[in-house]
């Protein structure tokens, strides 16, 4: 279970997150929605340790991880898939995938997870030994996701996975994600500008506006609220 409690983050005088709280239970998916500058990326960066909060805390299964270094948080099974730039362009597809699980020091489990990732994303299997910079946007996104799977992450923090993806690819990826949540108990925090597609797969949703939570609830319920959709979600 991932808990964010009263998280406040500021860049100098600019407060990016204002006492944000949320809970993602195991085996569920929460979508974080909002426009550009709402603080969505800051939220995931703070959870994964890249940004230091001014106040509040982040807990993983009850353990306070707020002050841990990003690499230590990753080793607890939290995989942050950053927006767009998550692949190491200079390395091959295979090297990128392998990197995900190296810290586990479990070559056998690693091989299994690798095969599974290729299974799940066939386009990657065909381009195994190609440098990642030559991949398309969609393939890069698959690579980032596949790498999180190879890491056998328990908690997945996805920052705008829909960015630059063709609609069809997005639908496929979301469907696969949903399966992983239901079948394996994966816990997902999904950051999205594309509210409609995010809410259609998520269990819960919260809406950020200028660093504050302005709405939260069941995904289906948020989808139905016309006022909210017009004011913050733009569809």
């Amino acid at each position: 279970m991932l808990e964010v409690i009263d998280l406040t983050v500021a860049y100098g005088p600019v407060v990016a997150l204002h006492a944000v709280s949320l809970t993602v239970p195991d085996g569920s998916m929460t979508a974080v929605l909002g426009a550009n500058g709402a603080g969505k990326t800051t939220l995931v960066r703070t959870i994964s340790g890249l940004t230091r909060p001014r106040g509040g805390s982040v807990r993983l299964d009850g353990r306070d991880i707020t002050r841990l270094a990003p690499e230590e948080i990753a080793r607890l099974g939290v995989a942050h898939v950053p927006q767009g730039q998550g692949v190491l362009a200079e390395l091959t597809v295979d090297e990128n995938l392998r990197l995900g699980g190296l810290w586990r020091r479990d070559p056998k489990g690693q091989r299994g997870a690798l095969a599974e990732a290729y299974d799940l994303f066939p386009p990657l299997a065909n381009r195994r030994h190609v440098a990642a910079f030559s991949l398309s946007g969609g393939e890069r996104q698959m690579l980032s996701l596949g790498r999180a799977l190879v890491a056998r992450a328990r908690v997945l923090l996805l920052d705008e996975p829909s960015l630059g993806l063709a609609r069809l690819v997005l639908v496929q990826i979301m469907a696969r994600l949903r399966t992983l949540v239901t079948e394996r108990g994966l816990t997902v925090l999904l950051i999205e500008q594309n509210a409609k597609s995010a809410l259609s797969v998520a269990d819960e949703g919260i809406v950020l506006h200028l660093g504050k939570v302005v709405a939260r609830g069941r995904a289906q319920q948020l989808l139905g609220e016309e006022r909210l959709r017009h004011a913050y979600l733009g569809f």
Binding site: L99, L102, R147
Partner: peptide, 18 residues
């Protein structure tokens, strides 16, 4: 591989537990 990754992109590498 870990050393190369760290050189290319330290931030992403840290997110991968390196």
């Amino acid at each position: 591989l870990r050393m190369r990754a760290s050189a290319f992109n330290p931030e992403v590498s840290r997110l991968l537990g390196i």
